[in-house]
C-alpha cells in the first residue's frame, strides 16, 4: 500500500513515542501517506490505522479533523491562501482573487488539467508575511505579489 521509503519514515516517527503509544504517530503517518498518494483514500487510512494498531475509525477521525489532510483527490499542486483578517488587511483576499482569475477556478476547485487545486486557508501563523500561500501543505510562500504568484505558478506548471 505504501512505499518502503514511506514506511521507513513512519517507523522513524513511531520511534519518537513510548513503545505503547504508536497511535501518536498517526498524524505524521497520514501526512507521509498523503505525500506519497496525493490524497488519503479510505484504503490508505485503514492501512495506516492497521500499521499503527489503532481502529480505522480513530484514524479517520484524525484525517477528517485536521484540515490539511485531503479526503478527496486534489490537483497535483494544492495552493492554500490565507484570507483571515490580518492577511486580508494586507492583500490576502486580493491574492486569492488573482489566483482564481489566473487559474480560472474558485476555492475548492481543481483546474481541468488536474494541475492545481485552490483552497482557502485559516491562520497559518505568518500574518506578518501577508499575503501568504501554502503550496502542497509544506512550502510557505511569503509576501506574495502578483508577479511572485505568476512566478510560482510558472514553476509549478513544470513540476
Amino acid at each position: 500500500m505504501l512505499s518502503q521509503e514511506s514506511l521507513q519514515q513512519i517507523d522513524r516517527e513511531i520511534a519518537k513515542y513510548p513503545p505503547d503509544q504508536k497511535q501518536s504517530a498517526v498524524m505524521s503517518a497520514l501526512r507521509i501517506a498523503q505525500v506519497e498518494k496525493g490524497w488519503l483514500p479510505k484504503e490508505v487510512i485503514e492501512f495506516v490505522a492497521d500499521y499503527l494498531g489503532m481502529p480505522a475509525i480513530a484514524a479517520y477521525e484524525v484525517a477528517s479533523f485536521y484540515n490539511m489532510y485531503d479526503l478527496e483527490p486534489v490537483g497535483r499542486h494544492k495552493i492554500t491562501v490565507c484570507t483571515n483578517l490580518p492577511c486580508a488587511l494586507s492583500g490576502g483576499v486580493h491574492a486569492a482573487d488573482y489566483l482564481k482569475e489566473k487559474l480560472g477556478i474558485d476555492f475548492n476547485e481543481t483546474t481541468p488539467d488536474g494541475k492545481f487545486t485552490l483552497k482557502e486557508g485559516e491562520c497559518m501563523g505568518a500574518c506578518g508575511d501577508a499575503p501568504v500561500l501554502l503550496v502542497n501543505n509544506h512550502h510557505m510562500c511569503s509576501w506574495m505579489t502578483k508577479e511572485k504568484i505568476d512566478q510560482i505558478l510558472a514553476e509549478l506548471e513544470d513540476k
Partner: peptide
C-alpha cells in the same frame, strides 16, 4: 510533533490529545 491544520490544538489539552494521535 507537527499539527496539520487545527487551531484548537493551541489549547493545551487539545494539544496533548493531538500528540496522543
Amino acid at each position: 510533533h507537527h499539527g496539520y491544520g487545527a487551531y484548537i490544538c493551541g489549547e493545551e489539552t487539545a494539544l496533548l490529545e493531538s500528540i496522543e494521535g
